[in-house]
């Protein structure tokens, strides 16, 4: 399935945060969304994730208009996201959070009655095997989130999003706050996730080395609109991109 965003505009009061932004994501494609601070990247993601409202434009995912749908409805259509800042869900264990992610995917989840009376051992083992092991979280599956490192929490958030078996994954700054090595690892994880689950990915990110190593295609945003699109190699050599990032040389 593919995502096609056309002429998306978002305003907050008089401020136009995103103006006529367009973006295409093909099946199994990893698209990087980069740009200086305040370019409107997160606002854009939030909008197609059902958090912010747009004033104009369209976003068609697998033939359906998805603008205006709630995050829950999007999850049912196979669109999941991670969050920029890791939320402090301190009292929950890793498995709890991942199960919550799976809950968005009704087919994978037993009903309330079954959960209430039954044990979930087999389901937990399955989650461990399919999600937590690849993300190096199997050892901490039953630990409360508060005992994990920041990098691990980011992984938990990713596992949570993946538990809903998405066809499209929005990653909002997946490596921000991680160490250099953790960041590179996360990049590799994202590629392997795409390969294993066969989903498309949009990732907003600042760390250029990770973006270059991970993405198939890169879209550069500035002042709320797209200024460049191309392969990582093209982005690195483009004069306009250099100007936006480094100022006039």
């Amino acid at each position: 399935m593919t995502l096609a965003v056309r002429d998306l505009t978002i305003r907050f009061g008089g401020v136009t945060a995103v103006a006529n932004m367009s973006l295409d994501v093909g099946a199994r494609e990893i698209v990087g969304l980069i740009g200086p601070n305040g370019a409107g990247k997160t606002t854009f993601i939030n909008c197609i994730a059902g958090v912010n409202r747009s004033v104009a434009g369209s976003a068609v995912w697998g033939g359906r208009e998805i603008l205006g749908l709630s995050p829950a409805a999007l999850l049912r259509l196979g669109v999941a996201r991670t969050f920029q800042s890791v939320v402090s869900l301190h009292d929950l264990t890793v498995l709890d959070v991942v199960k919550l992610g799976a809950a968005a995917h009704a087919r994978r989840r037993s009903g309330f009655i079954a959960q209430f009376f039954g044990s979930e051992r087999t389901f937990e083992d399955e989650l461990c095997e399919s999600l937590l092991k690849p993300l190096n979280l199997a050892d901490v599956a039953r630990s409360p989130i508060q005992t994990l490192s920041y990098g691990q929490r980011k992984s938990v958030d990713l596992a949570r999003a993946l538990a809903a078996e998405p066809q499209m994954l929005y990653l909002d700054e997946p490596v921000a706050g991680l160490t250099y090595q953790e960041g590179l690892n996360m990049g590799a994880v994202i590629r392997s996730v795409r390969d294993r689950f066969g989903c498309s990915v949009i990732m907003v990110e600042h760390k250029m080395d990770v973006v270059m190593a991970t993405c198939d295609r890169i879209t550069v945003m500035a002042h709320g609109s797209r200024i460049f699109e191309g392969t990582p190699a093209e982005v690195q050599t483009d004069q306009e991109v250099r100007r936006v990032y480094l100022g006039d040389a």
């Binding site: 994730a49 958090v51 709630s70 995050p71 829950a72 999007l74 999850l75 996201r81 969050f83 939320v87 402090s88 869900l89 301190h90 009292d91 929950l92 919550l100 992610g101 809950a103 968005a104 949570r160 809903a164």
Partner: peptide
């Protein structure tokens, strides 16, 4: 518990 921590995040996670 998610709602207690943040309703916004709960909504983003697909919780009604």
């Amino acid at each position: 518990l998610v709602i207690r921590e943040s309703e916004l995040v709960a909504r983003g996670m697909g919780i009604d």
